[in-house]
Simulated scan of single mutants.
Amino acid sequence: MFIDTTAPAKAVPAEDLFPSWRGREPYRDRLGDVSEALRRSHEGLDAAIEALPFERFEAASRSKASVFKYNEVPPAAAALAEALPEQLRSPWLCALLLWNIERFEERFAASGFDGEFKLHYADCFHRVFDQIEADPDFADLSKDSFHKDLWLVRMVMIPAFAQVWWPHSGLSAKDVIRSGIGSAAYVFLRCGGRQPFLEGHTHDPVAKAYWNENGWREALRLAALVLPALPEARGVFGTAWFYDPAVKEISPRIAFAQDLQVGRGAHRLKIGSNEGAITNATATSAERRNRYRDGTYLPTDYAVIWSRKDIREAYGC
C-alpha cells in the first residue's frame, strides 16, 4: 500500500467538520484499481490512448495567458478529442483524469502549497474515482463540472470545500470603474491591479456536502493559506447573486456567504442583473421566484473582492 509520508500529521479542521471527507484515505491503490476496471470495461480504450497520447492533448489544452477561462477548450484540443471514436470519448477523458492523478505527487512537491492541500486533493480524487466507477459518461467536454474536475486533477484549480479556486482570473475594468471611485481605489491601489486573481466557483458534485457555513469558512481560510505559493495573485474574488445585500432579508439562511466576508475586510461591488443571475437565484427557492415574479426582487450579481493582504489578515494565514 502507498504510504503518504509527506501529508501533514497535524489535525485539520475538515476532520471534525465534514463526516464525508476522505482526505486521509490513501488513494494510490484505488487509482490502479479504477484504471484497470475502466480499461477492462471499454474495449479499444488502449488503442485510443495510443492514437491520442495524453501528453499531446494536454499540450494543446493549456493557455500561455495569465488570465483565461477554465471551461473554454482551445480549438486544437477540441479537435483532438472530437477525432476519438464517439463511444470511447468519455472513457478516454476518464483515463485522462486518472493519468493526471498519477502525476500528482511530483506536481505537489514542486507547488509550494501548504501540506494540508495534499489532503484536500486526495478527498477530491476519491470523489473522481466514485464518478468514474458509477458512470464514465460524466466526462464530457461540454460540461462545466467536468472542466472543473479536469483542472483539479491537473493541480491548477484548488479544492476548498464550498468553492474551488481558479487562479487565472481577473476583474473587468468596466465593472470596477462603473462601480465608482471606492471600488477603483480598492482594486487598483489596495489590490495592486485587476488581474490575476483567484476566483471562487461552486462545484455541483460537492455542493450538497460542503456548501454551508463551515464549508465557506474553510474555503476562505484555504484561499488565504494558498496565497503564499501564488505570489502573482492580487487576491481573491467571487461573483454571484447571493452576494446581493437584498438576499440577506429574503434568504437569511445563506447570509453567511456575505457575513464571512463583507465587514471583515472584503470589498463588495455591484455587477448588475442578467439572465444568469435570475436563473440561478430563482432555481432553488420559491420565495425568490415569487418575489421576482411580483416585482419585489430583481436577482443581481455582486462581486466580493479581497486583497491578498486583507484576506490573509482576516483568516490568520
Rank of each mutant, 00 (worst) to 15 (best):
R89E: 05
I278R: 14
K69L: 11
G23N: 02
G272S: 04
S273T: 12
W216G: 11
A76R: 11
A219L: 04
F54P: 00
K309E: 15
I177L: 13
Y121Q: 01
Y186W: 10
E36F: 07
A173P: 01
V73K: 08
S111I: 03
R56F: 00
R103F: 03
G115W: 09
E72N: 08
L96W: 12
I101H: 04
S145W: 13
R40P: 03
V247N: 03
G238M: 13
C317T: 11
F18Y: 14
D33T: 09
G215E: 04
V153M: 05
G112W: 01
R39E: 14
P53D: 09
A51N: 06
I254P: 11
G193P: 00
A162Q: 14
N280G: 02
W241C: 06
R40C: 10
W211S: 06
G115C: 03
R40W: 12
F57K: 00
D135C: 12
V153C: 11
G180M: 09
E218H: 02
R24S: 06
S35H: 12
S20N: 04
R154P: 12
Q163F: 13
H267Y: 13
A48P: 06
H267F: 14
F237V: 07
R289C: 07
D301R: 08
F117Q: 11
C94R: 03
D137K: 15
L80V: 01
C317N: 10
H267W: 10
D175N: 13
Y121F: 15
I250N: 01
S273G: 10
G200T: 05
L260N: 02
R312N: 01
R217N: 10
W306D: 09
W211E: 07
W21D: 06
D310P: 06
P167Q: 08
A81V: 15
F188T: 02
I3G: 12
A257M: 10
P19M: 08
L52I: 09
A81E: 08
A266R: 00
A303F: 00
E43F: 08
A7W: 08
W211G: 00
H203Y: 12
A109Q: 13
L189R: 13
A283K: 14
S142K: 15
L38Q: 09
L227D: 02
A122H: 09
T239K: 04
F237P: 02
A207Y: 01
R89C: 07
A281K: 06
M1R: 12
S172M: 02
N274M: 09
R308C: 02
L152R: 05
D16Y: 10
R178N: 11
A283Y: 05
A277Y: 00
V153Y: 05
E275M: 04
P13K: 11
I181H: 12
D204K: 04
D4S: 14
H267G: 01
E15K: 13
R40D: 13
P75Y: 11
A257E: 12
L141T: 10
N290K: 12
I3D: 14
R154C: 05
P228C: 02
K64E: 15
L230Y: 15
T282Q: 05
E249P: 08
